[in-house]
Design a protein around this nucleic acid. Sequence first.
DNA 1: CTGATGCTTCGGCCAGGACCGAAGCATCAG
DNA 2: CTGATGCTTCGGTCCTGGCCGAAGCATCAG
Lengths: 232, 232
Amino acid sequence: MSAGLPISEIGALVGDPGRANMLSALFDGRALTASELAWSGGVAASTASEHLAKLVAGGLISVAKQGRHRYFRLASPEIARMLESMMVVANNADPAEPRRRATPRIAPNLRRARTCYDHLAGQLGVGIADRLVAQDIVVLGDEAGELTQSGLAWLERFGIAAEPSGRTRRLLCRPCLDWSERRPHLAGRLGAALCRRCGELGWIERERDSRAVLVTPSGLRGFAEVFGLSLA
Amino acid sequence: MSAGLPISEIGALVGDPGRANMLSALFDGRALTASELAWSGGVAASTASEHLAKLVAGGLISVAKQGRHRYFRLASPEIARMLESMMVVANNADPAEPRRRATPRIAPNLRRARTCYDHLAGQLGVGIADRLVAQDIVVLGDEAGELTQSGLAWLERFGIAAEPSGRTRRLLCRPCLDWSERRPHLAGRLGAALCRRCGELGWIERERDSRAVLVTPSGLRGFAEVFGLSLA
DNA sequence: CTGATGCTTCGGCCAGGACCGAAGCATCAG
DNA sequence: CTGATGCTTCGGTCCTGGCCGAAGCATCAG
């Protein structure tokens, strides 16, 4: 019911480097403790505490206390969507300027495979998207993607059941510009389902305290057999 | 190719009230002069000039000089998408806090009908969306909408041809949370096409120097006949 | 109980940046 | 040419807000 914040408040919340780094760290949908976020933000614990209080007050993140830890997470998928759209703009912006001090370097394991909110990103995510398009399982556009008829069958063989209802609750398939690869990977319900299924199959494991995803030995075989991906 | 700006820079650009107001003024896709934007931002011309320079440097807006005027517009549809997603977050955020000084009051004509980037918003926009859903012309979800079979025929009768190709270049139909009505209206290619067609029919006219849209007398009849809308 | 750990509050420092008015250019009208 | 208008640059003021360290609470381990 409330009239909501002015849009500038939202911008200002994301506009501080420390807070932006914290939000980026939360972007994969996991809950992190205040200490972890202080480290992500590159600030002292006291400063981080102030930042986190503002983010909570602004409704961008929510908090759950558990023992002597406080776990913070993004407050809603809308927040993740907003951050994503801001990343898209940030990546396209300002082609002339010499970079001030952009992301210094991408850790190789992050570049290899990581999560992006609830789906797979990095070389793995982009590779999967490429193969699904090449095999005519999905047709991908600028803002949305569609599952082909044969794609539906393929998915069931892979162990992902067709959605029962809620046909438009959340977009089935959406391209998401990959931050490190600069090419789209799959988001939306399909992206999340693929990520979940790969976890069930034991093909991937999430690393502690990081968005990085580890491909298991059986995953190496699986991605090669099913997707034709050779993950160097 | 460039690594792009850090996301915090983007946030900071939107994070100033003056700049945010200017961007909101540009949100309907039109080009405005520096003076007009100074007024929108509620700052002196000199201050506005500095803000505009920053927005241009950050790639959020582009400029075209024409005589002794300089016309500014949003640099790309991605920017509009980003602003929209930020508005969604702003509207949902912070249900507790007493509003600091939100948008003081919505001008009645803006509330009645206005443009939102390239489609219709306000009571008119929401009303159209309601009717199209009620008449089973579109099915609307949280993130996307679909045109029904009968809807396709209806659209052709209304004078909107089926899209020839580019089936997924831009999302056909997308709900967009209406800022004043707090309910969705239609965006995407369909929203833009409807807005354009209503203009062709002479049902609506854009007001000068404002996002407000005027419903003409023939528009009053048209909206009543075709959509069953009585626009008080 | 005592001590360690996680987090927040407090006090104080400091820089960035938002702001304005006046002056300086550019463009157009006459 | 002169004067009006649109916009930017410059100089200077002011204050918000980010930052830290130290101290204060809470929670858990022993």
